[in-house]
Design a protein around this nucleic acid. Structure first.
Lengths: 358, 358
DNA sequence: TGACTTTTCCAAAGCGCTTTGGCTTGCCTT
DNA sequence: AAGGCAAGCCAAAGCGCTTTGGAAAAGTCA
């Protein structure tokens, strides 16, 4: 485990030349370079990353402030996202640095990151409606990229988001076209912008279809099995089958696990009694095909987003990306067996339930 | 954003004194210290972390080599684990540094970590039977702590593991006591040590009960919904109800999602036709109570393990922990409604199905 | 061949901290 | 009064790299 100085003595070359040879600068002769490369490999020389960071001012890593706390559940989306980031980070030789911080000390964490220069840039996720972090990191001078966007992308900043509004518009439109007149939306927490966008999409579809907003039962909560179950029970347990919703939109596969459990318990069949469309972030461990009735979904890979975010953030850091690119990914609507004609219409087409279910 | 030098000029003190004052060394007068603290806060002075790392040789972070690659799914366990680590890391002011690496370049990644001194220690997880990393990191001189243990903990090394053997022994014993004579075990990948330990536990219980190993149908695969479904279908679809297994052990809640789906599809009722016990790592987003029939589980919080690993690793790094502490956590067996008497015995106790299910 | 580039290499100055090894004071002994 | 001892402070030497500003060697052109 030699250092630069020792290697330079070994080779009888200056540290400068070695550094240049290794970092691919043109000011060094080809034979010398080969000699250096050879010796470096042979002696297992690896530059000390801290020294390099100090000298260059570059950290070689991108940061994330990891929300922790007793009532904060890092959700499984994160691991998929991380996985995507990691895959790209690998090709750029950057590390990921996580700075844990409870919500109330978030600001402090960003300040520390900025002051200590331990990362070259950060990415922000779980954008809230009243997002404070944008102006904070901007003021601190940390290069950043947002995953998602706040409600009002004031001043313009770089982000990558999916078209949540469009996705849920399309999903709602499909239900409406299938004849569903009463919809329920078990949404994520509307303190987050994505949930608001989704709600807007649903409402736009209903408006376009001439339906009043009152025809929508909307509930907002953290996306997990428990809430899915609880809200579905609240919506359907004592509801009159003639007036209860026949089409349900769900913000996540986890919510849907709970919703489906409630339906089973209440003896409601999918899609005969109720249709359901879920957003799918593409988890390898839980797929829409893995439900008793394969789910119709709006699909967007969060893993791919992770990779792309990493790519863009690295570009932003190195100045290769012009400022404020706002990238919005379209979302696919994949029809599977959980959607069908509304019960009222069903009587008419009952002869062909198989096709109806497709 | 001042640096040490500027602050020292401002205060007309040497850099030494300021550094000492801030780091709590005794060689500095109390009034001076207060003056320094005050000024540091006022000017927002934060030591540059890279300079500090270079000077001290300490990185202030703990590392993990993040497995990436197209067929590598970072599973949701990881995020819970990470969450636990983060919670503790916070109290010790350390960051978590993830170095992505595909499996085949893992060794290289550890070498780079070691050479570049970017972290103070690493934790190892997903221990394999033929674990290579132990000797590698030891040879590289990186302080480490293993989550789990290899089959042969040769030479002794520090680890934290749960009692997988005991957990599945107890689970199997419960099924046997309930009269189940034919068991199935949908295990995790037996290339990993934990899965082998679990299998050993099941076999020990069967031996103790005088049952031959042939009474166990054992399957090993990655723990996810798909495999759970596939294996359960393979086991039960065409099986003779008189000879098929009546008790099932499942290695993870995700597998169990699939298993339960298969049971539903095959019209098998839990626990009337089949009992099931699952291992539960305690995910906030998917709980054993969230199944149509609440699951009997062996439970151990992976989040708590994450916190404990962080705590111990920090101690190991700072030399506070003596070498080679091997910590094994007991696992609780929580009985819920998914276990009941074996069908053959059921006829006898059928009068009291409610109690039987408890 | 001499002047002018270009190539190839180097010494030394940082980067911003910590830490070693003193140097002053002022105070207490004897 | 002289020696001894803390207490409180500082100058300077690293930590291991990158990068600036040359300088020497080599090649080019008239």
């Amino acid at each position: 485990m030699v250092n630069l100085k020792q290697l330079s003595e070994l080779l009888e070359l200056s540290q400068t030349t070695i550094s240049r040879a290794l970092n691919g600068y043109p000011e060094v002769g080809e034979k010398t370079r080969q000699r250096v490369l050879e010796a470096a490999r042979k002696h297992g020389y690896k530059p000390n990353s801290n020294a390099r960071k100090l000298a260059t001012g570059r950290a070689g890593s991108i940061g994330y402030v990891l929300p922790v706390g007793h009532n904060v559940d890092l959700d499984p989306h994160f691991v998929e996202f991380l996985s995507g980031m990691g895959e790209h980070a690998l090709t750029r030789e950057v590390d990921l640095s996580l700075t844990p911080a409870p919500r109330e000390r978030e600001t402090e964490a960003y300040r520390r990151i900025a002051a200590s220069r331990s990362v070259d840039g950060v990415y922000l996720s779980s954008m809230r409606n009243d997002e404070q972090r944008i102006s904070l990191v901007r003021e601190l001078g940390i290069p950043f990229l947002a995953h998602g966007r706040a409600l009002e992308p004031a001043n313009g900043y770089a982000f990558l988001d999916i078209d949540n509004e469009g996705a849920f518009h399309d999903a709602a439109r499909l239900l409406l076209q299938l004849g569903h007149q009463r919809l329920a939306f078990i949404n994520g927490d509307t303190n987050f912008a994505f949930a608001v966008h989704r709600l807007n999409g649903v409402i736009r579809a209903m408006n376009a279809h001439g339906l009043p907003v009152s025809a929508l039962q909307h509930h907002s909560a953290a996306m997990n099995e428990e809430n899915g179950y609880r809200l579905a029970m609240a919506l359907f347990r004592d509801a009159d089958p003639a007036t209860r919703p026949t089409g349900v939109l769900s913000a996540s596969m986890f919510s849907t696990l709970g919703i489906v459990r409630a339906f089973n318990q209440l003896g409601m069949r999918i899609p005969d009694d109720v249709s359901i469309i879920t957003h799918d972030d593409v988890f390898p461990f839980l797929k829409p095909e893995s439900f008793s009735v394969p789910l119709t979904t709006t699909r967007s890979s969060i893993r791919a987003a992770g990779a792309r975010i990493c790519e863009r953030l690295v570009n932003i850091i190195s100045g290769k990306e012009a400022a404020h690119v706002q990238e919005i990914w379209p979302v696919e609507l994949i029809v599977r067996a959980s959607t069908g004609p509304a019960p009222a219409e069903r009587r008419i087409v009952r002869r062909r339930p198989a096709e109806a279910a497709e």
